[in-house]
Simulated assay, not measured.
Amino acid sequence: MSQYTHVLAAVDLTEEAQQVARRAAALAQASNAKLSLVHVVEPLTFAYGGDIPVDLSEIQQQLQQQATQQLQALGDSIQVDEANRHVLTGSAVTEIHDIAEELGADLVVVGSHGRKGLALLLGSTANGVLHGARCDVLAVRVAD
């Protein structure tokens, strides 16, 4: 295995995020690499297609705040400096690719559910990260 210099753990902040973060932390420690965390909050307009005639900005702001708090707790648990914790808004795949390149990450760690069948091997986000990344990607199988 090559020595990595910057490991980026892309987490979804579900219960399984702890598994992904711990694996990324172990890899970073083994390589004496910098470790960063990223979580992407998708805009509510992505989910609803802008069809709801309601201002969702307050709810979006609350989602950002919750994600920041959860990422802070996760970062604290694996000793990631606050400066290396990133909560972004946008398309998860695009934002993960962009931050990986911006940070100079040479390994992105994502979670994947071990479902049956080749098509279900990776979730859509993990699959998208894998296929568009300019660095190594590790898909950590998380418990269902």
Rank of each mutant, 00 (worst) to 15 (best):
V87N: 02
V7Q: 07
D98G: 04
Q70R: 12
G49D: 14
S36M: 05
A83G: 08
S91P: 00
Q70E: 09
L74A: 11
I99W: 01
Q70M: 12
Y4I: 04
I59P: 03
M1E: 06
R22D: 12
G50E: 14
A83R: 14
L118C: 09
G75R: 04
A30T: 05
A126H: 05
A47T: 10
A143I: 12
L44C: 07
A83F: 10
A100I: 02
R22T: 13
G111V: 01
L107R: 02
V108A: 06
Q66C: 02
A9S: 08
A83C: 10
K34A: 05
L37M: 11
G75H: 02
D51N: 12
L120Y: 15
V93C: 00
L27G: 04
D98S: 10
I78S: 02
V137F: 03
L120F: 09
L71G: 00
A24M: 10
A24S: 07
I78C: 04
G117C: 15
E58I: 07
Q62P: 05
H6D: 03
A28R: 05
A92V: 05
S91F: 02
L107K: 03
D55S: 06
N84P: 01
A26E: 13
Q64I: 12
L120Q: 14
Q64S: 12
E42D: 14
R141H: 10
Q66I: 05
H86L: 08
D136G: 13
Q70P: 01
Q60R: 07
V129C: 03
V140K: 12
Q65R: 11
Q3V: 13
G128E: 04
